[in-house]
């Protein structure tokens, strides 16, 4: 079937080719066996199966949402009982676990570091369609990372939603490397006064990979804050749509929103579309956005090469340098290492 998903919150002209993305001839799996390769490392939590349907404000469209509600083969509800240095969930795809249709509901009442990873231990096509719903309770600090390292034959659909209560502080990191198609939808409901959301993400597209990234933040509470920073690189014929929306809702006095996207183009065939939106119905706010794209900085390249590196190695260093400050935020050394080695591998 063909599906049209990841709609922008406000439409613009169809000719601009950015309102949504159409994926043709996709088989959405149903009647699935339970996904068994899940590793959970954590203390101070209770886990349960999430029995209720999660109704999303945005998400990846009705077809994929009903696929999750009807067909999910993994479901998890995590509630914290104390502070957590680390909650780690690893979903490993292999020949027997090729399809994951899941939801993760996180009710975080204590300061926590969370890492969720999807990885392929197979070259076969994997399918992931999932929801990560997070509630950050009053005065709680959360640092969460989602790392997509599926193989390049796969489909990856992420629907992420957050509710931020008063004075909560959410650091979100997304690493988006894998998938033939990787479609991510992120919505943050920043409703509590003084709540802060800092979202940083990196993407790396090679071959014919398609990335469609749709980040939306609603600033509703007073003195709320959103900071979106997206760094990416595109090689070969990879294609990326970045849609980022900061929506200042009436009443969010003294709120601040910043959005920045930077895309390094590593090939003349790579294609990059960016739509950074600022929507505003409140005057007492500060909003900024900037996007830029272009080749690797030639001066830096020349400098590194003059020190004896090959062009390829020099490009890798420059990309790693741009990504590093974001990757550093992942609170798991093992996964951090894997991410760095994936950059080298994918840019070879």
């Amino acid at each position: 079937m063909d599906i049209k998903i990841n709609e922008t919150p406000v439409r613009t002209s169809r000719n601009f080719r950015v309102n949504n993305i159409t994926i043709n001839n996709i088989d959405i799996p149903n009647k699935l066996d339970e996904f068994k390769n899940i590793e959970i490392i954590a203390q101070n939590i209770t886990t349960d199966c999430n029995k209720e349907n999660i109704n999303l404000v945005y998400g990846n469209g009705d077809v994929l949402l009903s696929n999750i509600n009807k067909e999910k083969n993994s479901s998890l509800k995590i509630t914290t009982t104390g502070n957590n240095k680390q909650i780690k969930l690893v979903y490993s795809f292999d020949d027997k676990n090729l399809n994951l249709v899941n939801d993760v509901f996180l009710d975080i009442k204590h300061d926590s570091n969370i890492v969720i990873q999807y990885c392929s231990n197979t070259k076969k096509e994997c399918f992931h369609n999932g929801i990560v719903k997070l509630i950050v309770r009053e005065n709680v600090k959360v640092n969460i990372s989602i790392v997509n390292m599926l193989n390049n034959n796969s489909y990856n659909f992420d629907s992420i939603e957050n509710d931020l209560e008063e004075n909560s502080n959410l650091k979100y990191t997304i690493v988006d490397f894998g998938g033939k198609y990787s479609i991510s939808n992120y919505y943050s409901n920043i409703v509590g006064n003084g709540a802060k959301n800092d979202l940083k993400s990196v993407y790396l597209g090679i071959d014919n990979q398609v990335k469609d990234i749709n980040y939306i933040a609603h600033l509703k509470g007073e003195k709320t804050d959103i900071n979106i920073d997206v760094q990416g690189a595109l090689k070969d014929s990879a294609k990326k749509n970045f849609k980022g929306t900061i929506d200042f809702k009436r009443g969010c006095k003294k709120a601040k929103g910043d959005e920045n996207e930077f895309c390094i183009l590593l090939s003349p065939k790579a294609k990059s579309i960016a739509l950074p939106m600022l929507l505003c119905t409140e005057d007492d706010v500060e909003g900024n956005h900037s996007t830029a794209s272009g080749k690797v900085d030639q001066k830096s390249l020349f400098y590194i090469m003059s020190r004896g590196f090959s062009e390829k190695e020099a490009i890798k260093l420059i990309v790693r340098a741009r990504f590093n400050k974001i990757i550093e935020r992942i609170k798991d050394d093992e996964i951090k290492k894997e991410v760095l080695s994936q950059i080298d591998e994918r840019l070879n």
Binding site: P268, A270, S272, I273, A274, M277, S293, K295
Partner: peptide, 14 residues
């Protein structure tokens, strides 16, 4: 007040 700019870049030499 809304800002809705689309930037569509199809070459690296830019």
């Amino acid at each position: 007040s809304d800002t809705i700019p689309v930037n569509d870049i199809e070459t690296d030499e830019v």
